[in-house]
Every structure is written in structure tokens, then in C-alpha cells.
Design a binder for these strands. Structure first.
Lengths: 209, 209
DNA sequence: AGAAAAAAAAGCCAGCCATAAGGTTTTTTT
DNA sequence: AAAAAAACCTTATGGCTGGCTTTTTTTTCT
């Protein structure tokens, strides 16, 4: 009845009309559809037509909310980055468990695949790269902060924490690419475990947070 | 004058006519152009038009040699795989040097970027995946054999050699993806060195070969 | 009810892949 | 050596889809 009916979701939607709230939901649904499409068929095949079909909107509706494809992708990247940063699970007991969690609930997911599709496309699409580079830099810094907040290096060097975790993410990204050809999921998991085995001795969990 | 004029290049071209030799050269030039395009603008933007322009052929010529785009990509992948397998440089003295070489002369190259573009595209293009999966499997096995021929595990376990080198390749692939956004080449090289520092103690070079 | 926002529909242009119809060069046949 | 065949390459054409713009219809707000 009242517009406050929609206000419990996020802090952003306070005191907005029904119309704006609907618009918000439409935009979110369209971004979700874009993520699904990216993960399923990749960046090149993610057309406005396809996104509209998945989200069950008309092509025109998608283009009303996101005038150009670049707008759509940029907004979707925002959604993805925000989501991956704030996704927090149960607190792990060991470094090994924490890193395995990172693989299973952070990297090896449709959302992260979608993000990788965009990153790969942005390599050769300068306009897109310009558009999302700021958000990506912020995101990288946030990840580094999270690393420092959660881990301590045995050596005592903080830079090493950031470095090792960035390396871990790179490794896992590479694994995602390889999984297609010849290497099955079980072998991939072995690789992850071996990696963890190698670098876990260099890290300790921080208690706080 | 004689057709033998063309025979000193490769063992394949023995006793072939002038025309076939020309055809061979055309196909090679087209594949080279495809590799250049893949590295420069990515898979999606690599059209037959663009390849033809780079190779300085007409579109029809490209399509004469490679009737479909899939044929063109498959042939290009063959070229790439063959080239990366047989590229041998000076024999390195240490494990560290060998692994750094792998990064600088094998992974961090336009050719490998081109290959990654195709691999990424093949993830969501089942027809292409079917088409190149056999070659990729063979290639993976060849790489494993090369690993075993060049390295020995300190632990004595041969599987560990294969595993560590595959992990190294995954890690480096991931690094390639990341280099676009925020991480510069110097930092990337630091990561490579750090990783080498971690796993080199687990490996030894074999003298033979 | 009337204004504004949201959504849908229709049209436009460019680019892609693929095919087909010619012309030229090389090879084979006679 | 001349004619036929094959290989190679170019140009032109067509069907299709993508993204973008414009117009029309529906929904929502005051």
C-alpha cells in the first residue's frame, strides 16, 4: 500500500515511489539476466535480444534502462563486483579452509565466470575498458584490504599477504580457463589443494573481524 | 625453374607443384593473419573480412582455403599448437631460468594470447570445442611429456612434475588475464618470480636431451 | 484527468558468414 | 603444342543478426 512496503530491501530505496522501486527491480532483473547470459554463452553472444528474452522483457525495455550495450555491461559489472565483495560465509577455522572456500564459493561460480567474460572482452575493447577500469581498481583495493584484514604473513611482511592472495586468484582464474579442455573437475580440485598446500604454510588467519 | 626450387623449406613440400606450394604459403599467411587478429582484437572481432585485410587477400580467397570460419580457426589452432610445442630456445642452466623462460617466451606472447582467445570462445561454442578438442588433448599430453623429459621431482614422484608444471601454466594464464586492469607488467613479473621461488626447490633439471 | 515514466514495437543500418558466378593461372591431357 | 581440367582468386549477392533510434502504447503518479 504505502511506498514503505518496498523499503526493507536496501538502504538505497528509502522514500522512493512505487515507480522508482519497480524500475530498480527491473534493472536488477536485467543485470541478473545479463550475468546468466554471460556465464552461459559468453560475452559475444550476450546480445540485448538475448538478455531481454532471459529477463522476460522486451528489447525496448532493456534499452530504456540501459541505452547502450556498454551501459548494460558496466551496470552488470557493478552488480558483480559489489556482490563478490560482500559475499561472506561462515568464518573458516584454518587457512586451508579459507582458501578452499575462496575457490568453491567465490571463483568457481557462474558469477565469476561472467566477470571473466567481461574482463576478457575489455582487453580488446578500449571503450569498455575505460568504462569499467575505475570500478575494477576500487575492487582490487577492496580485495587487498580484505586480504590484510583476514590474513597475516608468517614472514611478518604485509605485502606478502597481498601478493600471495593475488597470486592465488590468478591461479584460480587460470584454472577456470583450462577446465574446458581435457582437465576434469576432480583434477582441477586436486590442483587447488596442491596450491593451497604450497602457500598455506606462509599465511596465518587473523582472529579479529 | 624446376619445381624442386620450392623444396628446401619443409619436409612436407617434397615433390609438389608450384601451385600447391603457393597454396601452402597462402594458407600459412592467412593463419598468421588470424593469429595476429586474435591477439589484437580478440575472437569476436576476428572476422573473415578482417583476416583477409590483414593477410592482403580478398575475402573470397580466405573462404576458398577455409570454407567456414570454424575451419579457419581450427587450422589456426593447429598452427599455434604446433608452433608452441616445437619452440625450443637455448638450454637453461637452472630450474628458475627455465621457468622464467616459459613465461617470457612461451606464455607472455601474442601467439599464446591468440590461443587463449580461442580457448575462451570454445568454452561456450560447442561446435568449435568439438572441433579442436582432439588437438588440445594431444597438445596437453605432449606438454606433459616435455615436462617429464626436462624435469625431475625432488620427491621422486613423476606425477608431481606434471602437476607442478600444469599449475604453473594455469597460474601464468591467470596472470595474462589480469594484466589488463590495474596490475602492470612489473608487478606481474614479480608474481612470476615469487611463484618460481616457491616451486623451484621442488624440481630439478634433467641433464639429458 | 493529465503529465510523466516505463515498456513495447517497428524500422534502420552495418557487419557477419556463406554462396555463387566470373576470370586468371597452373596443371594435365591429348 | 594445343585443348581441357583443375586450382586459385576476385567480385557480387543474399540471408541474417546485432545494436541503435524512433514511434507508439501502456502504466504510474499527482
Amino acid at each position: 500500500m504505502l511506498s514503505s512496503e518496498w523499503n526493507f530491501g536496501g538502504a538505497v530505496n528509502l522514500e522512493v515511489g512505487l515507480q522508482q522501486a519497480k524500475s530498480e527491480r527491473a534493472r536488477a532483473a536485467i543485470c541478473d539476466a545479463t550475468i546468466a547470459s554471460l556465464a552461459a554463452v559468453g560475452y559475444a553472444e550476450t546480445s540485448i535480444n538475448r538478455v531481454a528474452a532471459i529477463a522476460d522483457f522486451s528489447k525496448g525495455a532493456v534499452q530504456y534502462h540501459f541505452p547502450t550495450k556498454e551501459d548494460l555491461i558496466a551496470a552488470t559489472v557493478d552488480t558483480l563486483l559489489l556482490r563478490t565483495v560482500q559475499s561472506r560465509g561462515a568464518k573458516p577455522a584454518t587457512v586451508e579452509e579459507a582458501l578452499l572456500n575462496a575457490w568453491q564459493r567465490f571463483i568457481n561460480t557462474p558469477a565469476y565466470r561472467a566477470l571473466m567474460e567481461v574482463l576478457n572482452a575489455a582487453r580488446t575493447d578500449m571503450a569498455l575498458q575505460q568504462r569499467i577500469s575505475c570500478e575494477l581498481l576500487d575492487w582490487g583495493q577492496k580485495l587487498d584490504q580484505q586480504s590484510l584484514a583476514s590474513y597475516r604473513a608468517v614472514s611478518g611482511n604485509n605485502d606478502e599477504v597481498v601478493m600471495l592472495l593475488n597470486m592465488t586468484r590468478s591461479f584460480m582464474r587460470g584454472l577456470l580457463l583450462q577446465e574446458q579442455y581435457g582437465v576434469d573437475a576432480a583434477a582441477t580440485l586436486d590442483y587447488v589443494r596442491k596450491w593451497i598446500e604450497l602457500i598455506a604454510p606462509l599465511l596465518e588467519l587473523k582472529d579479529n573481524k
